[in-house]
Amino acid sequence: MEKILLKKALPQWVKALASYTVYSPKKDKEESWNYAEIDHEDFDPNFLNTTLPPKKILFPQKEIFLEFSKTAEGSQETLEVKEVLPEKKAAVIFGVRPCDARAAWLLDKVFSGEFTDPYYWIRRNQTTLVGLACDAPPSENCFCLSVEGSPFSEEGLDVLLTDLGDRYLVKSLTEKGEKLIQAAKHHFHDPKPEDRKKVKAIQAESVKKIKRQLKDARAVSSKLKGSFESPLWDEESMSCIRCGICTYLCPSCHCFDINDEVESASPLKGNRVRTWDTCQFPDFTMHSSGHNPRPEKASRLRQRLFHKFQYFVETYGQFQCVGCGRCISLCPVGIDIIKVLDKVNKHGS
């Protein structure tokens, strides 16, 4: 369903969502954008790519699975284990870029299937994603078109807004999205044919504004296989400093570690916690024997690209990269996934 919402009525819409925790990108004092809780008047549609994607809300860096504690009464010791699930609280994220929403759609695949991850799904089901189509790329390294996305893709979103100047065209895509509109329905009205025409024009323009391109991603995907032993990985990873930026800030990277974090040893008390982990850290693959199957940074860079462009494609038929460009923009040494994959493409031919 498509509706029109005047921009000046948006704060009223947000106000009507009092039962939700509302997040949107906010500019900090360093002029970087990041998701934070907002008041009804705070939404700024001109945001650039946030440093951390909305992944941090759907799949937080720290998730407590259970609490454990030991109590002693005389010689009787009892170990108590209590399951902890995410707090039930409806949330809405205003201003999700279509690429980041596509990443959530990819995470949906990862966290379902043979095992359904209750922690992820509680958060995912109680969070409504309100996307904002990109009329201009929010980062100079945007390349969503190359990985089968677009500046107005709808996968993963509940609502998609298109900025028409003084108004938004509001398209609800799911029941969750519909409910959000119903919460302030008197502010929405039906679009006129010229509104729809304008959306089409904006979309056609936005596609043209994307500068960066990964050529023939599907071909790269099949060529990766033959490049496993290539010296290319050594060369391309020479400048890698083995930090976690490219993966932690990636909207679709989802690897994690689970640890028992002890708060007190006596009496025993602590939590079993899931935290983000990354294939870029040397200890990610360290075996307890001391053997590390991915000892060099070359094998770790290769793993990141193989996972995104080959293994994930084999398993789910999709790239595990949405072209947001964060790993390029924020890499301290300028490792550029597009450039590396272009070399793979040439290498294979």
Binding site: L52, Q61, I241, C243, G244, I245, Y248, L249, T278, P332
Partner: peptide
Amino acid sequence: CIRCYACRSV
């Protein structure tokens, strides 16, 4: 801090 350890790595 998200403990990406970029400060240490660089």
